[in-house]
């Protein structure tokens, strides 16, 4: 099951719509890390609201993805982790360290807006 990736201005938004196999997750990682450079994106949002399980493989893939994207010069935000999923993750010791999280898409956009603010030298002085 491929995950659709949407380009929204400077950002890429990937919305996971159903349970993903390990192969699907790896494809998502490759696709996002590739496109972020191609489209010169400043931020990536991965929406995991639909995931009812986040096991060690999924957590690790998302964490690696975020770190790789940072190396490519962009920020990643994971949004929509369900309460039960978060509870299970911390009990397994999976805390997505060093990765930003947000409650929903709106929050994620706000967060990226703050994080990716560039010195606006090309803008007209206000």
């Amino acid at each position: 099951m491929a995950v659709p990736i949407l380009k929204q201005g400077q950002y890429l938004i990937a919305t996971i719509q159903s349970a993903l196999s390990d192969v699907d997750l790896t494809h998502l990682q490759d696709a996002l890390v590739g496109q972020v450079g191609k489209l010169r994106s400043r931020g990536v949002i991965v929406d995991v609201t639909a995931l009812d399980v986040m096991d060690s493989y999924a957590s690790r893939t998302l964490r690696d993805l975020a770190h790789m994207i940072r190396l490519r010069g962009a920020e990643t935000v994971i949004v929509g982790i369900q309460p039960e999923v978060a509870f299970s993750m911390v009990q397994l010791g999976l805390t997505l360290e060093g990765v930003s999280t947000a409650l929903d898409l709106e929050e994620a956009l706000l967060h990226l807006g703050q994080k990716t603010k560039r010195p606006q030298q090309r803008d007209k002085p206000s």
Binding site: V79, P83, V85, A86, F87, M89, V90, Q91, A102, L103
Partner: peptide
């Protein structure tokens, strides 16, 4: 500590 971490995963 786990509760704090889980809350962060939700974005709080």
């Amino acid at each position: 500590v786990q509760t704090v971490e889980a809350s962060r995963l939700l974005g709080a």
